[in-house]
């Protein structure tokens, strides 16, 4: 079933998918165990003439076992999840590229800081629904919203983060493969919610250079971002 997952092109996407698979196998095995046991009991203990049900109120040992085993599994899962979660959402690495994404009904505004690397200066560039980034670089996305809550969703990069009016939220990703990917909005935001989407263009290094040069021809450096 997990073969339906969109192709993963993110550095940390593998961790997400690993946990997805792990939980899939654990829950799948539990489901089979429970269902087979249930069907077996239903067959073995169906009503038959002259047989009386066993009179039993339970079994403390068994009950302790089936409390402790799931508890251990779930605690281990929590620990494993926690490590990846902190990496993805709490500790954003230093960015190679910084970009501001502002949601509004029903578009994404992508703002690039320009050669000076600072937002809110004259060389900023704002494009609607187009996010251009280089492959293999850490992209830090500063998420804002002008009106209601939206959700910035990059299925192929295993990133989802709501945008909330009144605050700025930092998200990040690092694409491993060049290509063009959809950016749907994942949180109901009004009648135009469906169809609110942008495109993520992950460029190979040279192509990205060209894109930057086209956008900021005056800049000798040709860098659309700080650092690198």
């Amino acid at each position: 079933m997990l073969s339906w997952l969109p192709e993963n092109v993110s550095t940390y996407g593998g961790e997400v998918d690993f946990l997805f698979y792990l939980i899939y196998y654990i829950t799948g095995a539990t489901f089979i165990l429970v269902t087979v046991t249930m069907l077996a009991f239903l067959f073995l203990y169906r009503r038959r003439e002259g047989r009386r049900a066993i009179y039993s109120h339970g079994n403390t040992t068994l009950e302790i076992i089936w409390t402790i085993v799931p508890a251990i599994i779930l605690v281990v899962l929590s620990f494993m999840s926690q490590a990846s979660w902190a990496r993805i959402k709490s500790h954003a690495p230093p960015g190679d590229v910084e970009v501001q994404v502002t949601s509004k009904q029903f578009n994404w505004e992508m703002t690039y800081p320009g050669p000076d690397g600072k937002f809110g200066t004259a060389d900023d560039l704002t494009l609607e629904n187009q996010l251009h980034v280089p492959v293999g670089k850490v992209v830090r996305v500063h998420l804002r919203s002008k009106d209601v809550i939206h959700s910035f969703f990059l299925p192929n990069l295993r990133l989802k983060q709501d945008t909330v009016p009144g605050r700025e939220i930092l998200a990040w990703f690092q694409a491993t493969k060049a290509g063009t990917y959809e950016i749907p909005c994942a949180e109901l935001c009004g009648f135009g919610h469906s169809g609110m989407k942008g495109w993520l263009y992950v460029h190979p290094a040279d192509e990205y250079e060209t894109w930057v040069k086209e956008r900021w021809p005056s800049s000798s450096q040709g860098e659309g971002s700080k650092g690198s």
């Binding site: 961790e15 997805f20 899962l77």
Partner: peptide, 14 residues
């Protein structure tokens, strides 16, 4: 349980 795992929920939330 899938959704309880925060990293998996990143993908399947909403």
């Amino acid at each position: 349980i899938f959704m309880a795992s925060t990293p998996v929920d990143i993908f399947i939330h909403d």
